[in-house]
Amino acid sequence: MKYYVELTLLPDADMSVYYLWERVYQQVHLALVEQKEANNRLKIGVSFPDYRLEKHSLGSKLRVFAETKEQLSSLDLSRWLARLTDYVHCKDVKEVPSELKGYGCFKRLFEKGSNERLARRRAKRLSISYDMALAYFESDKERKQSEKEVYRFPFITMKSLGSGEKYPLTIGFSETSDLTMSEGFSTYGLASKSSVPLF
């Protein structure tokens, strides 16, 4: 990842930072969908430089990374964000600085699922009754705690273009020792194993 574009959200009294994330990230996602390869993966990733887990906050900046200037130019984020110019500042393509803090993975987190769905899977996998499997999940305090943990993480409310339903795009972060592109990035610019530079 040698080049990046930085977006800065500019909230005001009428447009909160949370609502801006919803509008801006929907457009970024659409731009990335147009760039996806045959395997539905991308060579373009994102970072949230002001990400703060303890504040459940993504901050107000987004960096979009690519290996070449051409990849970022063809993404054409200015066009996708044209209706939001009063609320987002899009800088020109820049080279990633040589001095880095390290590397990190910004990944999508999922809820574990309903007790009923998990019980059906457990019953089938272990050849036990559905009632036994359901009882296991209803008494599982550790699982309930881990479900609450997902909601600790910052998220962006997204809207499905297919169904029109809204859903949380929950974003986790972990630091890594080096830059890796082992799996590419999703059409959200996120990946659990591919990393981006931190600075």
Rank of each mutant, 00 (worst) to 15 (best):
L84T: 01
Q27V: 02
P168E: 05
K2T: 11
S177E: 14
T157C: 04
W80I: 00
L72A: 02
L77T: 06
A31S: 08
C105S: 13
L118N: 12
T68R: 05
Y19L: 07
M1S: 03
V17H: 00
A38V: 11
Y19I: 04
G162W: 05
L118T: 05
L169T: 12
G162T: 13
A133Y: 05
K193F: 12
P168R: 13
Y167I: 01
M181N: 12
R83K: 14
L161R: 12
I171T: 04
R83Y: 11
L7Q: 03
Y167F: 15
L72H: 06
F65E: 02
A38E: 15
S139V: 03
A13L: 08
L10S: 05
T85L: 08
I44M: 01
N40Y: 12
Q27A: 07
F185Q: 02
S195P: 03
D12P: 02
D131R: 07
V46P: 00
L100M: 06
Q35F: 03
R108A: 03
P97T: 11
G104H: 06
L161N: 15
T85C: 09
F153W: 10
D50W: 09
L126E: 14
R63Q: 12
S195D: 07
K166Q: 14
E138F: 04
M15E: 14
S182V: 13
T170Y: 13
S98Y: 04
C105N: 11
Q26V: 00
G189M: 09
L81E: 09
Y19G: 10
K43M: 08
